[in-house]
Amino acid sequence: MADPRIEELTTEEEWDAAIPILKELWTDASDEFVRSWRDEDGYRLFGLFVDEELRGVVGLSIQRVLHHARHAWIHDFVVTAAHRGEGYGSELLDFVESWAEARDCKYVALANREGNDDALEFYEGEGMERWGYVVETEL
């Protein structure tokens, strides 16, 4: 088996290949909605491949807000269910941290959906700390 490689997904075909994996996280999202993210300013999607098989994706942007220094924000982070527990999440997170450092970020941050305890356990096991809560209202 080849070592995993991570590369940015830039073509329509690459994004289409990522849709089933992203929909493991965002089960209610339509394919068209997922495709529309490709046009969002600053959003970048990276895929983790083993041989030619896409096994995980991470969607990122760089942000700066008053309460936080320049940071990489993880919008989407998912390893396909068939390959969870094989170390690919750690590979992706290591990539994110290196990518963020190379862009002068001081932090990597994300929001973890309430009730997604497995993901929270993974992030904390990787050394990430809970900082606060995300609250929202639908418009």
Rank of each mutant, 00 (worst) to 15 (best):
D51H: 11
R55M: 07
H71D: 06
L93Y: 10
E53I: 05
F49P: 01
S61L: 12
E114A: 13
M1P: 05
A100Q: 04
E32N: 11
A2D: 14
G132L: 04
L60C: 01
H68F: 05
R38F: 00
S98N: 07
S36E: 15
M128P: 02
L120Y: 11
E52V: 07
V57K: 05
D118A: 13
S36A: 15
Y107N: 07
A102R: 09
H83K: 14
L9T: 01
A29I: 07
R5Q: 13
R113W: 15
L48P: 01
E12G: 10
V134M: 15
L60H: 02
A81V: 03
A81R: 13
E126W: 08
L93S: 12
G115Q: 10
S90G: 15
D31G: 08
G115T: 10
E14M: 11
R38L: 00
S98V: 06
S36R: 15
L92K: 03
K23M: 09
L92N: 06
E24Q: 15
R5G: 02
R55N: 04
G127V: 05
D16S: 15
D104N: 14
W73R: 13
G42A: 03
E40T: 07
R84H: 01
Y123R: 00
L54V: 05
I74W: 03
L110W: 12
S36K: 14
G125Y: 08
Y107K: 09
R38D: 00
W73C: 07
D94F: 08
V34C: 14
L45G: 04
G132E: 03
H71M: 09
W73G: 02
T27H: 13
E40H: 09
R64T: 09
H68I: 05
F46V: 04
T10L: 15
L54F: 04
Q63L: 13
S98I: 03
R70K: 12
G47Q: 13
E86F: 09
K106F: 02
C105V: 02
G87K: 04
T10V: 14
Y123C: 00
E121K: 09
A29T: 05
D3M: 08
F77R: 13
S90P: 05
G85R: 08
G125W: 06
V58R: 00
A17D: 12
V78D: 01
D3H: 07
A2Y: 07
Y133Q: 09
F49G: 02
Y43E: 03
L93W: 08
W15F: 03
F95E: 02
T11G: 06
